[in-house]
């Protein structure tokens, strides 16, 4: 589970999962930079502040929610592992289910797939 600075909170798998939200974040950052560098409409204290805060606030909210949900999910995964339970949408509520058949070879757990 070697990882970079965030390694304590997220393992490598989780970080890979979180990459999906880094893309929209990157697009927003790109536009923040682009609008800062290329400014055909001039600056105006109020409108420029609104302009950048729309992108910055939305991006920051996305960052926070991604962090919080990633943390909650990876903690929940550890909890499931401790209990020895299955990491599957189908597992859970009813105990009555038949013992689930082994997945066919091509049926991999989507959770473990890296980015396509």
């Amino acid at each position: 589970m070697a990882s970079d600075s965030e390694g304590k909170t997220f393992d490598r798998e989780t970080l890979l999962d979180l990459v999906v939200n880094a893309i929209p974040l990157g697009i927003i950052l790109f536009f923040i930079l682009a609008f800062a560098l290329i400014n055909p409409f001039g600056s105006n204290p109020v409108n420029t502040a609104i302009q950048f805060s729309i992108m910055a606030v939305t991006g920051a909210a996305l960052l926070v929610l991604t962090y919080v949900s990633g943390k909650a999910i990876s903690e929940a995964e550890d909890e499931l592992e401790e209990k020895g339970l299955e990491l599957s949408e189908e597992a859970g509520a009813g105990e009555v289910a038949e013992p689930e058949s082994e997945p066919t070879p091509e049926t991999t757990d989507g959770d473990d797939e890296p980015a396509a």
């Binding site: 999962d17 979180l18 999906v20 939200n21 929209p24 939305t58 909210a61 996305l62 929610l65 991604t66 949900s69 990633g70 999910i73 599957s88 949408e89 997945p103 066919t104 091509e106 049926t107 991999t108 757990d109 989507g110 959770d111 797939e113 980015a115 396509a116």
Partner: peptide
């Protein structure tokens, strides 16, 4: 087969929400 990239779908759902 199971949903490919289940967690991608979860995180992108949350991203859309924000």
């Amino acid at each position: 087969r199971k949903l490919f990239g289940f967690k991608f779908v979860v995180y992108s759902t949350l991203a859309i929400g924000v």
